[in-house]
Simulated scan of single mutants.
Amino acid sequence: MLDLYKNIKQLREEKGLSQDELAKLTGYTSRSSIAKIEKGEVDLQQSKILAFAKALGTTPGKLMGLTEFDGIQPSTTLAAHFDGDEYTKSELDEIRQFAEFVKNKRKDSTV
């Protein structure tokens, strides 16, 4: 959780915000609260992490130092949606055949 506090300070400085300004944006009454947070002396509730992320223009995950996928490989979904009148039936058949060709080519290369 230490990354969270370092990232708050770093992003605040990058954005040119004072501790007073960040305090106001996140619902605190004084800069001393922000100073304590940046030193890691205060545990933040989830709602406050969200407030800091919003004030600093980032996501809670990035603020906490998590990687984009946190070690999980993203799945890839590829889909095509057609209105039905932009391609002829023959062209749609050709698109389907090409997609099948690509899948089969992949299968052939793993053998």
Rank of each mutant, 00 (worst) to 15 (best):
L2Q: 10
D3H: 08
Y5V: 03
Y5G: 03
K6M: 09
K6V: 12
K9P: 01
K9M: 10
K9H: 03
Q10L: 08
Q10S: 09
L11W: 01
L11Q: 06
R12Y: 01
E13M: 13
E14W: 04
G16A: 11
Q19T: 09
Q19F: 08
E21Y: 00
L22T: 00
L22N: 00
G27W: 07
T29W: 03
T29S: 14
S30A: 15
R31C: 12
S32C: 14
S32P: 09
S32A: 15
S33K: 03
A35K: 06
K36R: 15
I37L: 01
I37G: 00
E38Q: 02
E38F: 05
K39T: 06
E41L: 15
L44N: 00
Q45H: 04
Q46D: 05
S47A: 12
S47L: 10
S47Q: 10
K48M: 03
K48I: 03
I49L: 02
L50C: 08
A51N: 04
A51E: 04
A51G: 04
F52W: 00
A53K: 01
K54W: 05
A55V: 01
A55P: 01
L56T: 00
G57H: 12
T59K: 06
P60M: 05
P60W: 02
T67E: 07
T67R: 05
F69S: 13
D70N: 13
D70F: 09
I72S: 09
Q73G: 07
Q73C: 07
P74K: 14
P74Y: 11
P74N: 08
P74I: 05
S75M: 11
T76H: 11
T76D: 09
T77K: 10
H81W: 14
D83I: 07
D83K: 07
D83G: 10
G84Y: 03
G84W: 05
D85Q: 13
Y87P: 04
Y87S: 08
T88M: 12
K89M: 12
S90E: 15
E91D: 15
L92K: 10
D93Q: 14
E94P: 03
E94G: 09
E94F: 10
I95M: 15
R96D: 12
Q97I: 10
F98Y: 13
F98C: 08
A99F: 11
A99S: 13
F101W: 11
K103D: 12
K103C: 13
K105D: 13
K105C: 12
K105E: 14
R106I: 15
S109T: 12
T110P: 03
T110Q: 12
V111Q: 07
V111H: 09
